[in-house]
């Protein structure tokens, strides 16, 4: 006996094998964010002064730029996955839900790109 529904048989679609993708990415980004977020907060708090020259000097250190870029990218991905679930849980109208999910994705990609671009500009000497 097959467990597939008649509709599933007709459509010929099986499992896409992506069922755990969201779950796995959320865990992967969580694990990465523990050291990255702690590093970011500790670095920010231990900067002697928060004036422009000090922040630029800090960001021009190559490992700072690298870790900042990783932090921005991973945090944006983690945030997008998290906000997505919240929208899916509480926004029930299909059209509004889809629209919100598209906007959530776009905003996160925009944030990630803007953040990385800003770090690169400082790292490569764009900021005077």
């Amino acid at each position: 006996m097959s467990l597939r529904s008649p509709l599933g048989r007709v459509l010929g679609l099986g499992a896409a094998r992506e069922g755990v993708h969201h779950w796995w990415m959320q865990r992967l980004t969580s694990v990465a964010l523990v050291p990255l977020a702690v590093w970011f907060v500790v670095s920010l708090l231990t900067l002697p002064v928060l004036d422009h020259a000090a922040v630029v000097a800090w960001m021009r250190q190559s490992w700072t730029a690298l870790l900042l870029i990783l932090f921005v990218l991973v945090a944006c991905r983690h945030s997008q996955l998290g906000v997505r679930v919240v929208v899916e849980d509480y926004v029930h109208a299909v059209g509004l839900k889809t629209l919100t999910l598209v906007l959530v994705s776009f905003v996160h990609v925009l944030l990630a790109a803007a953040g990385v671009l800003a770090v690169l500009r400082v790292a490569f000497g764009g900021a005077a």
Binding site: V55, L68, V72, C76, A114, G115, L117, A118, V119
Partner: peptide, 14 residues
């Protein structure tokens, strides 16, 4: 995150 990216772009903007 919005605040973080705003701050980073401000650093880059001079």
């Amino acid at each position: 995150l919005l605040l973080l990216v705003y701050w980073l772009t401000a650093v880059a903007a001079g």
